[in-house]
Design a protein around this nucleic acid. Structure first.
Lengths: 124, 124
DNA sequence: TTTATGTCTACAGAGTTTTGAAGATTTGCA
DNA sequence: TGCAAATCTTCAAAACTCTGTAGACATAAA
């Protein structure tokens, strides 16, 4: 069995786990997650997204460009505005599962805090 | 309606989209995706993971630490070895959906290439 | 004590994000 | 038509964050 090293000979097609990592990395920024959450309700103009995130217009545009490169969003122009939308609805499933995993973690933390409190006031 | 800025007053609890971003960011590295894929088949020692990824033992340990901080993995010690396992099986769902989204993208690319080839040899 | 395994620390190099200014495109209007 | 306003995008420099590497440290077993 080959050990499947992390860095194959250059020039080869990138291994799947690298593609996945690039994909997840683009989700690894609060502004981009926020934008995707906004797009769950339908398309939004850059201006609207900018207002919602509080970013510079330039920054907003760059985040959108990054997401487009990863095939996460697509856009259409209408007058001087550009509207963005999610390209694949499965991205929302992804966000949903992430939320569930995070919720599980928070629940765990909550129980732990409860246990700590119980130690101060022992004997139920 | 408040615009929900990206950066709230410091000291407040972090907004959900920041937690999600932190979560995804930890998935944004090939070695870590690779490690999770290996853990799909059950627990693995650091040494095994190191061999599979081709990293230094130190690097492997650091990636595992990062994933533990995010609650993605947990470990147990057995003799001089430490075995890691995924903490929440839903993480594999996440990887699966990512794979599907990526597969869709590749399919698209393939079609596009087909179209280009067709232009060189027109008239079907 | 020595060997086997992992983890921690520190830091240089690589990569990402922010910011501000300049450029592009479309529309409206004199 | 020609100009100005509105909306985005691109570019480049500075600030920041992450990763790989190497060595010291920790722990368990022989």
């Amino acid at each position: 069995m080959s050990p499947a090293p992390l860095e194959p000979a250059s020039g080869e097609p990138p291994p799947i786990f690298r593609l996945k990592a690039d994909f997840f990395r683009v989700l690894g920024h609060p502004a981009r997650v926020r934008i995707l959450e906004l797009l769950r309700d339908g398309e939004r103009s850059v201006g609207e997204l900018q207002a919602a995130t509080g970013l510079e217009s330039s920054g907003t545009s760059q985040h959108l460009t990054a997401m487009r490169r990863q095939g996460l969003v697509e856009s259409r122009r209408a007058g001087t505005s550009v509207f963005y939308r999610a390209k694949d609805p499965r991205i929302f499933q992804l966000l949903e599962i992430a939320k569930q995993i995070l919720a599980g973690r928070l629940e765990e933390t909550r129980e732990l805090l409860g246990d700590l409190a119980a130690e101060d006031a022992p004997r139920s």
